[in-house]
Design a protein around this nucleic acid. Structure first.
Lengths: 128, 128
DNA sequence: GTTTGAATTGACTTTTACGTAAATGCCATG
DNA sequence: CATGGCATTTACGTAAAAGTCAATTCAAAC
């Protein structure tokens, strides 16, 4: 496990711009440390970036992603707070389950569409 | 199956504004018919709206949604076009499979987070 | 026949998520 | 030491996806 990554290493790995990484920092999603003015990204920052981009692909907004990320920041020691956290986790899980239902429905419709195309081709005497 | 829906019926059913529906029409995603100036939404328009919103929840842009919708518009009769359509369908399916992978990873991480919370609670002598 | 209420249109505004440009810092290398 | 090449900061720009508002229109109810 590398100790630090430079900003350009991450831009290349994830195919995003430096602007995007600085934007996420401005938004408080990541906090790379500094050596002088230069940003040093730790493995944990790198993993956060991975989570952010995954969230984006799933259509979560920056604010929603921020909420998800906060879940992983140092779980509280106090019982009430822990219970609240579990509640928030379950809300996020429900969000994801809704997305999964949407996804399965969309996939099913595409499957159906593909099938009619294949049938149509068969009628035209084309063997797929 | 109803023959027509008014714009307000759909706004209520889907909890969106009339502006949104008109926006989708301007974007060419739906084409309700007109009686005078009034829009009449057919069941097929209604289903399109359903598909659009599902696509939105999954993080597709309007342009991506437009592409998906075009898949369902009157499959072509010509072999080459049919094969092209099948190819496009499979691209969309691959998009969705990537989202599904993202989704499962996110869910797994949330499950893990929840479990550590529950464990932490157990250590504190709280029975969940 | 006028009031009411829903629909429409057009224009302007807002939010999100970055892009882009300009000016400057930092440092290794020849 | 100057040159090249990343990095940084600040500031302004922009496209997508609606929200909001004002001005009408139109039909139906009273």
């Amino acid at each position: 496990m590398r100790e630090y990554y430079s900003i350009t290493e991450l831009t290349k790995e994830f195919d995003i711009s430096t602007r995007t990484l600085r934007f996420y920092e401005d938004e408080g999603l990541i906090q790379p440390i500094r050596r002088g003015r230069t940003r040093l990204f730790r493995p944990s920052d790198r993993h956060l970036v991975r989570q952010i981009l995954r969230g984006k692909r799933l259509g979560f907004s920056i604010n929603e992603i921020r909420e998800i990320i906060q879940i992983y920041r140092e779980p509280p020691g106090e019982v009430g707070q822990l219970k609240l956290l579990i509640k928030r986790i379950n809300e996020k899980k429900e969000d994801l389950r809704q997305k999964r239902r949407d996804l399965e429905e969309s996939l099913a419709e595409l499957d159906q569409a593909e099938e009619s195309c294949v049938e149509r081709l068969a009628e035209l005497g084309v063997n797929t």
